[in-house]
Design a protein around this nucleic acid. Structure first.
Lengths: 343, 343
DNA sequence: GTTAGCACTCGACCTAGATGAGTGCTAACC
DNA sequence: GGTTAGCACTCATCTAGGTCGAGTGCTAAC
């Protein structure tokens, strides 16, 4: 579709624009050294590239900037695919060498490392508990009316919630039920817990236990969908350092969206479906506040199954090569780490 | 120190400036209605107030703005102390009527309500676990090399961390130790756990248990200081709506600091020492990035003891009356709620 | 003690001209 | 035919000068 020379020129323009954030003129391309044509020739090609929709011109007498289509072509065909520089790889390796003794810490820390390395905003989705199963269930009374329900998953995550104990239920009855649950529901996937509770244990419990109704209500509450996936955000303020977001009004909308957990979830969740690294440029993100942003996402897995995702948000004028490299290494290493952790 | 008229005029200037964010002239004060003097008279008083250090003039031919000292006087002597409007009180009441079944959710939600009501940034310090005691301890094996240590506190908070099991230790031994811990260490304050572990249980365990060293090392890790207080932030982007922070460079430093948990901790922690509501204006905050900000803090308690604090960060030109009212009601209600919750 | 009047100050805003980076087009060159 | 030098043209940015008006400080009158 594009001639070799056009690709070279497009590549040069995107490269320059990523560095300078300013419209690129034909003369500066000519001076770069890798495109050995005069400015006039380059101008002609640039006019063609603009007609084809790969470039845009802010105004008549300015240089060109890449259009969304231009970035897309750059990402798909031109971006130098180097699997992260050695210093970066080293930083990531060093990070994973640290001993972090809780999943939460690990993910949070990873988000920080990412935003520091890239100078963009990093968004991490904690591991989806959807496919994990129950390891242990416990009800711990705090006083005679409330208790803490503790759920430990097969991956070692611990969730807890407070429940109120129906006054009719005795301590011994509760213990009986908890034991029953542990013997029957261990290794059942979390999302099936509640249906199993009714189908398998319902009858048995109804026989042995008084106040079946109240008890079930309490257990229902205790096992309430814990699938609220955690979102970790880091380096949101890096947005402010980008020249395209010097204007407070523009950046406000973006930062507002970043404060909303459900929005972030929606943005990163679809990525988990696909595999590998995905790039969404400008309006390919649904929210119009992100029209001037690009989002690069990758997934990580436990046991061969994608359970969470990593995202880097920056301006469309993003250092794609660098970010792609870093994200590749990090998602691979995170997968390896977790696989090793939870055999 | 100030005449009644001077106080009236100072009050009017601060009031106006809080609303408009623009230097206040003598004419607009005169037109307000509550100060029945001509602009000329007011000008004379303003000159005096400036000499006394309560007002400042951005440049010769502009109106006056309050100095830090002016704000301080306003907050200490002039601010209309109304305990939150009825609509606001209602909103807060409605919030507490909601059923939230985990401490974490409650606090996080409270932070959101606060920032929404005030349009400033709210910072909440989760309850300090320092003075809470151990309710229950558990070690749950995940595989033959790792286990999850679960600590439940007297306030129903659940902490967990992953520990590695020394290969020499058998399951039965571990159970024995956990039972011992639960019988001996329950109701011991968390911060004393580790010392008690050594002092009270050391000898006994050394007698009964083989591989004492390795075991102790594991327990040490499991009981590792969990006192990392959680910080909840909400509405950080509200800073961007303030006209004094239209400039990205100014607001960047502030938002950067807000991303650092330790900084927030340091800022709010001292407040927990004092009692009641405190106002820190401008440079009274230690960080110079906050020189143009005011921080209003309040504490909340469990069982008569201050365990956490609430902060509202805004420009020095803050709606002190409104925020003070809201914060007063919220901290009182939060205290009541928690007291009720954890009898 | 209070107020009207007035000269003065100074930032905000507008306009006009200079500057220069960059373009599109044409004609000459290889 | 592809490439390039030359040139007129465009247009955002910058600067300087000028107007405007809000607000002051001072003086004199009430």
């Amino acid at each position: 579709m594009l001639t070799e020379r056009q690709r070279m020129i497009l590549n040069a323009i995107v490269d320059d624009y990523i560095r300078s954030a300013e419209p690129v003129g034909s003369r500066s391309i000519s001076k770069r050294g890798d495109v050995k044509y005069s400015p006039a020739t380059i101008r002609n090609e640039m006019a063609d590239l603009e007609e084809l929709g790969f470039l845009e011109q802010p105004h008549t007498s300015a240089g060109r900037i890449p259009s969304h289509k231009g970035y897309r072509y750059y990402v798909d065909h031109l971006v130098p695919w180097n699997p992260a520089g050695s210093t970066e790889t080293e930083t990531i390796r060093a990070f994973f060498a640290e001993k972090l003794n809780a999943m939460e810490q690990l993910i949070q820390h990873a988000a920080m490392i990412l935003s520091n390395m890239t100078n963009y905003t990093s968004i991490l989705l904690g591991p989806e508990v959807f496919h994990t199963s129950l390891r242990h269930f416990q009800l711990l009374p705090l006083d005679d009316r409330t208790a803490v329900a503790i759920i430990v998953t097969s991956t070692g995550q611990v969730e807890n919630r407070k429940v109120s104990i129906p006054p009719e239920i005795s301590v011994s009855e509760m213990e009986k039920v908890v034991n029953l649950l542990n013997s029957k529901l261990v290794n059942v996937p979390l999302y099936k817990l509640k249906s199993r509770l009714y189908s398998e244990l319902g009858q048995e419990m109804q026989r042995h236990i008084s106040h079946y109704e109240e008890l079930m209500q309490m257990l229902d509450m205790a096992l309430e969908s814990d699938s609220e996936q955690r979102v970790y955000l880091s380096g949101a303020t890096n947005m402010l350092t980008q020249p395209e977001f010097r204007d407070v009004d523009k950046v406000k909308d973006i930062l507002d969206l970043l404060e909303e957990t459900p929005t972030l979830l929606k943005m990163l969740a679809p990525a988990a479906g696909g595999t590998g690294i995905q790039v969404r440029i400008g309006t390919e993100n649904k929210h119009e506040a992100f029209a001037a942003c690009s989002l690069i996402t990758a997934t990580y897995s436990i046991d061969g199954e994608a359970v969470g995702s990593i995202g880097i948000l920056g301006p469309t004028r993003m250092e794609y090569a660098k970010v792609l490299g870093i994200l590749g290494v990090l998602s691979r290493d995170l997968t390896a780490m977790l696989g090793h952790w939870y055999k």
